[in-house]
Design a protein around this nucleic acid. Structure first.
Length: 201
DNA sequence: GAATCGATGATCT
DNA sequence: GATCATCGATTCA
């Protein structure tokens, strides 16, 4: 793959959200355990022009990261108990981020189940990563991952590394309105792999 | 299977 | 003090 993380993520948020579909995300948790899943559902969030975005009100201490360099993780806590994983997009000083909504587990399912508090055997793979909060728990991601750079090849990092495998992406995707928000609901900024059995509800 | 509802804390006004 | 991009338990079917 010829592209760098900076050039891949430093594009229009909607394009990045669509191009992430089918890519495999590998993450090494705080315990050094690797897990991986295919990205099957994303949502694009913009800047001041997007009323549903954290950056809608301009730069604040929290949204500052969305204006920063592309290709890093943005993790925040929602409803007091769930983490959400985003990737920063667009050029520097332009706000944008892609929310990762659902994964199809590829490897490390046992580790995921353990982190999610599910039984070691008998759990359903569909219960592991079919939602933003669930996949963060399964991958061991919390706010300590803020600013973690996304790379395209495994490095030496023992823990809290994000490696994205862009090869082998599928092309059959769809778009729909975003989920669970109250503003700008009608924007078709949610993207998903057609026919995936691992989409969020 | 679908619908309802409460928990919970960082952030910003 | 209002907001919020969720989940899981519970209910009804």
């Amino acid at each position: 793959m010829a592209v760098s993380p900076g050039s891949f993520f430093g594009r229009a948020t909607v394009e990045v959200a669509r191009d992430l579909l089918g890519a495999v995300l590998h993450a090494s948790g705080p315990d050094g355990q690797w897990t991986a899943g295919r990205i099957v559902e994303t949502e694009a969030y913009g800047g001041q022009d997007d009323p549903a975005s954290h950056a809608a009100g301009g730069r604040t201490p929290r949204s500052e990261i969305m204006f920063g360099p592309p290709g890093v993780a943005y993790v925040y806590l929602i409803y007091g108990m769930h983490h959400c994983l985003n990737f920063v997009t667009e050029a520097e000083d332009v706000a944008g981020a892609v929310l990762i909504r659902a994964l199809e587990p590829v490897s490390g399912e046992m580790t995921m189940a353990e982190r999610r508090g599910l039984a070691p055997c008998g759990f359903r793979p569909r219960d592991l990563c079919t939602g933003p909060g669930k996949l963060c728990q399964a991958l061991g991601i919390d706010r300590a991952w803020n600013h973690v750079p996304v790379t395209f090849a495994a490095g030496e990092e023992p823990a809290r590394a994000l490696v994205l495998e862009l090869s082998g992406r599928r092309v059959s995707w769809g778009a729909s309105p975003r989920i669970g928000i109250t503003r700008a609901r009608e924007w078709p900024h949610r993207f998903f792999l057609s026919g995936s059995g691992h989409l969020s509800r």
